[in-house]
Amino acid sequence: MADLSVKVCGTDFKNPIIPASGVFGYGREYEELFPLDKLGGIATKGTTLHLRTGNLAPRIAETPSGMLNSVGLQNPGIDHFIDTELPYLLTKNLVVLANIAGSTPDECAEVAAKLEDTDVHMIELNISCPNVKQGGAAFGTSCEMAAEVTKRVRAVTKKPLVVKLSPNVTSITDIAKSVEAAGADAVSLINTLLGMRIDINTGRPILRNNVGGMSGPAVFPIAVRMVWQVANAVNIPVIGMGGVSSGRDAIELMMAGASAIQVGAAIFTDPYAPVRIIEEMNDWLDSKGIASVKNIIGTVKPW
């Protein structure tokens, strides 16, 4: 039995596997299938200041080895999260990363401030949503906007602050360095890649929102590359995600430099994926005689 525990921003995880924000809701639906305390942590559904109804359907499309989604941040609002969902999750013996989002830096800061008096373990700031104050461009697509929203949230929270990076940028390392300088304690990446599918019989995009975020095994090599580049560019921990669907994938992303791993679309294919991945990681480490998963973080030997 290998030691699977990891530490990110001073927070102990019993294992490195965390269901990614958006695929897992607030965990209740999956507890029907397995006890949540098997997980290292949970990144909760992206939550905004007020309830959001989200986009019209269809919100989901299959793609080769992956999928698109455009849910549009449907969520019940931060007060509901704090009153109803967080107390439940805090009984589950796992690290709770509250994923937060907003349309303006003010909104993001207000959401973070509301979490300050709770026992939530970490905040994961989604900077891939449109900044309505800057013509709708995503915060995460410019170093200035990414730094500004990070600073605003940093100013109101002492919780470990993880900034979730968008891959839809020219240089993800520049964005990572700017959020590090603005006070982020860690970064998580990659969020989904913008994609589009068209039904050629109707000429209509499959998604009602025309475009959506692509995830699944198809994006995994991009995640490995970006995690590797970012881990080499910053001095804060990196939480890796993007197409991880097996223990081997999780090990690979940790070798690239990730200290913990989020699992997303794989859960739709196999609802037990997070639990299976934990077991597969343990088996691989045992087979190699590696005592602790911490010993593989960032150990890739580049040519």
Partner: peptide, 30 residues
């Protein structure tokens, strides 16, 4: 509706409904 998780977690299969006189995005799966 096009669906991902099937159990009400991902909110992919939205359907516009009215409950208690308020518009509500229900989910076809749950």
């Amino acid at each position: 509706e096009r669906m991902a998780c099937g159990i009400g977690a991902c909110l992919g299969c939205a359907c516009r409904t009215v409950r208690n006189d308020e518009e509500y995005f229900a989910h076809v799966c749950k």
